[in-house]
Simulated assay, not measured.
Amino acid sequence: MFRFKQFTIHQNRTAMKVCTDSCVLGAYADLGLAGRLLDIGTGTGLLTLMAAQRNPTARIDAVETDEEAVLQAIENVTNSPYSERVRVIKGRIQTFSAEPYTRIVSNPPFYTNHLRSPNQAVNRALHNDELPFEELIASVVRLLNPDGQFWVLLPPFEMNRLSIVAEQAGLRPFRQLNLRHHALKPVFRTIVGFVFDAPANPETDELAIFEADGKTYTESFHHLLQPFYLNF
């Protein structure tokens, strides 16, 4: 169980637990003007609930294929202050149909050729067999409002692969965050916002989670997560 200031994430049923990089995505992505928001692969419902806290008027759909994760997300949403504005849906995004969204957010599976776990739920959460980047982008293009934004979190190599697929489909990056454990460590996650009509050079931000000691949170990280973390 992971307690935030305004909601609690139970995670005993799901393969993927609350992680820092997902929290950064939920806090950093431009979700403030979302009238309708879609969370692809919601898992525990973390990004959905962070979005609901940040935007008090958004209507949010959270789509997930794994039965246990769906039940977990429903539990977390039901026990939150935002249950009337959130709908958790079991299904594949490839066949999901709805009116266009002003914002789409996703922390998708990205492994392709790595060793498999004996736990099939872990495989679904980590490996993109069931949601290849081509199918993810095709779904986003189909479901995103023409002036909407798609926000996604991936490791740098996989983000480069997805960006190529996205550009071929007409989506281009307009803002990027490079996330490091601390300033001397390499980038381990990248958050990118995509739109249909983007400038040639996207705005790029850098964020280190810790100071050089590897223990003290940086002021920037503290400021970004302050609305959510209990200890900030």
Rank of each mutant, 00 (worst) to 15 (best):
R3I: 01
F4C: 06
Q6C: 06
Q11M: 00
N12H: 15
N12K: 12
R13H: 05
T14H: 03
A15M: 08
K17D: 08
C19G: 11
T20A: 04
T20F: 04
D21P: 10
S22G: 15
C23K: 07
V24N: 06
L25M: 12
Y28N: 07
A29Y: 07
A34R: 03
D39S: 08
G45F: 03
T48K: 05
A51G: 09
A51H: 05
Q53Y: 06
R54Q: 14
N55Q: 14
N55M: 03
T57L: 11
T57K: 11
R59H: 08
R59N: 00
V63A: 01
D66A: 13
E67K: 03
L71M: 10
L71E: 13
E75L: 09
N76Y: 01
T78Y: 07
N79I: 02
Y82F: 15
V88C: 08
G91H: 03
Q94S: 13
F96E: 06
S97Y: 10
E99F: 00
Y101K: 09
T102I: 02
V105M: 13
P108T: 00
P108Y: 01
F110G: 10
N113T: 13
H114P: 00
R116E: 12
R116M: 11
N119H: 04
N119S: 11
Q120I: 09
A121G: 13
A125Y: 05
L126I: 09
L126G: 07
H127M: 11
N128V: 00
P132Y: 01
L136K: 03
L144N: 02
P146D: 04
P146G: 07
V152H: 03
P156R: 04
E158V: 03
M159L: 02
N160D: 14
V165K: 09
Q168V: 04
P173E: 06
F174M: 12
R175S: 08
R175V: 11
Q176F: 04
N178F: 14
H181Q: 12
H182E: 04
A183I: 11
P186D: 09
V192T: 12
V192N: 09
F196V: 06
D197E: 14
A198H: 03
A198Y: 02
N201S: 13
P202K: 06
E203C: 02
T204A: 11
I209Q: 12
F210A: 01
F210R: 00
D213W: 03
G214F: 11
K215A: 08
T218I: 00
T218C: 01
F221S: 01
Q226E: 15
P227R: 08
Y229T: 05
